[in-house]
Design a protein around this nucleic acid. Structure first.
Lengths: 144, 144
DNA sequence: TATTGTTATACTCTATAACTATA
DNA sequence: TATAGTTATAGAGTATAACAATA
């Protein structure tokens, strides 16, 4: 089975292949914690923005309110996230539970080890360049 | 809503954000042709490997036989792909139809324009570096 | 026995649309 | 009127498991 020059030349295609491989590996190492990469990102964003509401969280994750709901529901069932009364009667304020805080450290250790293992195919200098180039393609401050 | 240093440092996370953005844009420009990025990749691989069977195609696309079936079914309904008797009675030989050949050119023009537009955020030198780095993360010759 | 195509089924992720209760 | 949360529903995309035909 031959590859094809058209496919190989597309940045988007290579980006996706690399992202899919990284996602599968991240999923694997996070499985023991009962979370997926998206759910871990949710936990990290709630920790960084304690008391945020679901709509803002969804925007930061690039999903809609309904999808943000599902993420929070699941993390709340797992006992990692807590909904408290928000700044008005129609918003929730999201917080990590003590359990969530406690486990998040180990989850981050796991994902960072896995990420570093993948990135280790590049030299530290190359990693820095890659991060910078990816930023130019999709800046992290796209978050509201 | 603040971002988070842990998230921003993960190569996999940035990779995914960039890939998702690229995928959404590719999906948009391919929509008029009734194909998605994965279906276009299927067409390109069949053109590069005329007479290949579905199992090999699936391997090249990193999906299983059943998912490869669905892709071929859809492209065959669209009239882009044809199943002919294969090298033995249990394999199909896949080919583009004349219609598929004819349309593929326009599809490739569209995706290349869209890819170049995204990549234009980088200088040509940077694009070259990015391609090289992505190759080291997920070499295209991962295809069997 | 192993492999190819096929089918049925299920699961994950995300979206849309509509409802409710606030603001 | 607009917004936050919620619910029900639907659609992609992919996977697993089983079966028939063939090697």
């Amino acid at each position: 089975m031959k590859s094809d020059p058209v496919l190989d030349h597309l940045v988007g295609y290579r980006l996706k292949r690399a992202a899919v491989a990284a996602d599968a590996e991240a999923r694997r190492v996070l499985e023991p914690f009962g979370v997926t990469p998206a759910r871990l990102a949710t936990l990290i964003l709630i920790r960084a923005n304690p008391g945020c509401d679901q709509t803002a969280l969804g925007r930061a994750l690039s999903v809609n309110r309904s999808s943000a709901m599902k993420l929070v529901n699941l993390l709340s069932e797992r006992g990692f996230v807590e909904r408290r009364p928000g700044r008005n009667a129609r918003t929730n304020a999201l917080f990590l539970t003590p359990e969530g805080e406690a486990q998040l450290g180990a989850m981050i250790d796991a994902i960072e080890r896995s990420d570093e293992e993948m990135a280790a195919r590049l030299t530290p200098a190359e990693q820095k360049v890659l991060r910078a180039l990816l930023d130019k393609l999709a800046p992290p401050d796209t978050i509201d």
